[in-house]
């Protein structure tokens, strides 16, 4: 039961991450990597591919959901205690700060640039046909510039994710610290 209590703890504590933060972390991690692969694949599709229209529809829809998730996640982060990183060296603390906030900034720019590709001409984005995200800024030619930024930032995101993953594995296997464990199984309850 104590194990279940730790799993289900909603808010973050100084010891570790609650269920909301952990769900945000892993679901967004999976979605972002899947979006990178989907994005790379779909831009190379033949015009007669059966996925020529559906793949970008999924990419746009998931992108809009990620944009909302990122904003809510940032609010959640700001409203919660930050789990301690006292077991990291001062250099690691600085690097961790840069990578974590880098993720927020780069992901926001990545998602907004994607939004601009589709909405630069005034068309809305339909999210799985459930609802429309309207265009708020129109400019002829913006779609190409936004596309350039989107591509660069997609690679930057994956580079950040690689650094983040290597650091997590280092803390887990070399430092034998709880860094990776606490993102998986939550903070101790006592």
């Amino acid at each position: 039961m104590r194990w279940l209590g730790a799993m289900m703890l909603v808010r973050d504590t100084s010891e570790g991450y609650g269920i909301i933060s952990r769900l945000f972390h892993w679901l967004m991690a999976i979605a972002i990597i899947a979006m990178f692969v989907l994005g790379l694949w779909m831009v190379g599709l033949d015009y007669y591919s059966p996925y020529y229209n559906s793949a970008p529809n999924i990419h746009r829809s998931v992108g809009m959901l990620l944009l909302f998730a990122l904003i809510v996640r940032w609010v959640w982060r700001a409203a919660n205690v930050k789990p301690s990183d006292a077991d990291l060296s001062p250099l690691e603390q600085k690097a961790s700060f840069v990578v974590h906030w880098g993720f927020y900034v780069v992901l926001l720019a990545l998602l907004v640039s994607g939004y601009l590709i589709s909405t630069a001409g005034g068309e809305p984005i339909s999210v799985f046909g459930w609802f429309n995200v309207p265009s708020i800024f129109q400019m002829h030619g913006l779609e190409s510039r936004a596309g350039y930024v989107h591509k660069i930032l997609a690679y930057v995101t994956i580079a950040l994710a690689a650094v983040h993953t290597l650091a997590a594995l280092k803390h887990h296997y070399i430092d034998k610290s709880a860094t990776l464990r606490r993102m998986w199984s939550g903070p101790p309850t006592e």
Binding site: I117, A120, H140, G141
Partner: peptide, 12 residues
């Protein structure tokens, strides 16, 4: 680059 087909993604 001023190509315009009334659809931003296609123009891109």
């Amino acid at each position: 680059a001023s190509v315009d087909t009334n659809h931003a993604e296609r123009d891109k």
